[in-house]
Design a protein around this nucleic acid. Structure first.
Lengths: 291, 291
DNA sequence: TTGACAACTGACTGATCAGTCATTATTATA
DNA sequence: TATAATAATGACTGATCAGTCAGTTGTCAA
């Protein structure tokens, strides 16, 4: 079963349908008080059908985290790769934070609940991995904007900015109404400018920061991983004029002993046109630089 | 049953024993996977005994929130009433934040999970009430330190500082080890100073802030409320040289048609000597100013 | 010592729910 | 149209758990 949303090429599989309904229910009533039956009722399918898509309730939870974290990371990465004046990019970064926050609120509120208490060890690992990825890209952006001078207090700056974003996000959650996020972004730019300009004291030294338990120190993207992700989307994009062939081309290239970076790079550009392929594009990019 | 901890006069009732064990288990394994049986096993009592202290599992949850939030608010209030140079007071405020954060970590991590999804309507109300109380006292402190000039952007300043505290708290949770909180506080003072000095832009206007759903607008402390709280502690402080009589004196005074503020004020001073009576002291203070 | 009262116990009940599987419906193919 | 293959169903099972209550133990005053 698949659904064609509006004019965009957004087909969702039954897995995605279950994920979306489950997130909505989890966010609404809490995970503890949402049964598989509730989820399947919301999807209009039987309980047995659920177990054709997911092996267990736990596997659903892992899939939910993967799904949303990949989309969020993908969007940020897409922004950070764009060519534009650096200050403007920082403004867009803040803006995207609040836009995604609104858009993914059901997931985020569900996520915040489980954050500290991951029943699943897998989820903790994944969270750490994505969190680190996010920190790295944010730090890179800050360096791009302010240059080397932030080096001595870069981790304090990162922690402070993440905190301020959290502070405003909480206000927004507790008091839902339409906000002028562009204006909010500009006030956050001012705060960041001020902090960069006048901060002299440091708390988070390189040593303190590095003593965090590393999760991606030795992480590298495997051919298999990319192939799996490509397969996942081939099903969804069957019939799409460009993407279908792009995915096949990538699949073929990965069969070769020495995949050609140039070809993969070109295919990446195609993938970036599609909102829900940002993660695959990022994965492919990481894979390509490893070659 | 009561337990005498070290040399301090810290007697805990069975209710408190259950609360503490429950919080520890909830924080460790999550609320969903902790049964009443698990809690009573941890306490060394039978399941039936649990229901002599609490009418239901939900009532336990409410009691947990009351217990910790009162203690935390009490501590902050105690600090804010102390006479000392204002900058020093702000430093102590930051310090207390991190000290309480460490001390109450099990509760806080449990709390963060349920924050967005209060099964119990009561808990949401209580949370809003205590949160507002906290915002009010923090704003008062900031005005005490920086004066009227923060007025135009006071809510932005409050939100930013709360956020920064959150940011560092999260770092600390994700990476447990001993920290120099005094140094951390001093870096936060610097950040606050800088923000107060150079901020020009405002996002959270008076109007936006005031449109938050109010919970304590018309709130006032009733005689009954104070009496109940006094009774709760009379049991615990039976035999204590000063507190036992102090509590009786308050109880007697509240019987009168016109309780004398002077007497209550004096008794408040006695209560403030005891760590776990900070909340009662605050309650009594609010009651006294209403007279 | 006795009897009355409170504190405590833990087996039991009914409800909920994850996960299974024999059966039925739908689709693809020949 | 007939047959095979695949998708979907929902009644059922066993496990867990909140809350109950008939019975036991402890305490204390007379």
């Amino acid at each position: 079963m698949s659904i064609l949303k509006s004019r965009e090429w957004v087909i969702i599989s039954k897995q995605q349908l279950i994920i979306e309904k489950a997130v909505a229910l989890y966010a609404q009533d809490g995970m503890a008080s949402t049964s598989i039956q509730d989820i399947t009722d919301a999807c209009g399918i039987s309980k047995g059908a659920f177990y054709l898509s997911f092996k267990s309730k736990d596997e659903l939870l892992v899939a939910i985290f993967e799904h949303f974290l990949r989309e969020i990371i993908g969007q940020f990465n897409c922004l950070l790769e764009k060519e534009m004046p650096v200050k403007e990019k920082l403004a867009h970064y803040f803006l995207l934070h609040f836009q995604l926050f609104e858009e993914k609120l059901p997931f985020i509120s569900m996520f915040m609940k489980e954050q500290m208490n991951p029943i699943n060890e897998q989820i903790l690992n994944k969270f750490n991995y994505y969190n680190e990825l996010s920190d790295k890209t944010t730090l890179a952006l800050l360096k791009e904007v302010y240059g080397e001078r932030i080096e001595p207090f870069q981790y304090d700056l990162l922690t402070t900015i993440k905190g301020i974003l959290k502070g405003y996000s909480e206000f927004i959650v507790f008091h839902r109404q339409p906000y002028d996020f562009i204006h909010l972004s500009s006030t956050l730019i001012e705060k960041t400018d001020i902090l960069v300009e006048y901060t002299t004291k440091t708390f988070l030294t390189e040593q303190l920061w590095q003593s965090k338990p590393r999760s991606m120190q030795e992480y590298s993207v495997t051919t298999f991983e990319v192939q799996e992700e490509v397969k996942r989307w081939q099903e969804v994009y069957k019939g799409h004029p460009i993407i279908e062939d792009t995915l096949s081309l990538i699949q073929d290239e990965l069969q070769l002993a020495k995949p050609r970076p140039a070809l993969l790079h070109g295919m990446m550009a195609n993938l970036k046109q599609q909102d829900n392929l940002q993660w695959l594009a990022l994965l492919l990019k990481q894979f390509t630089v490893q070659l």
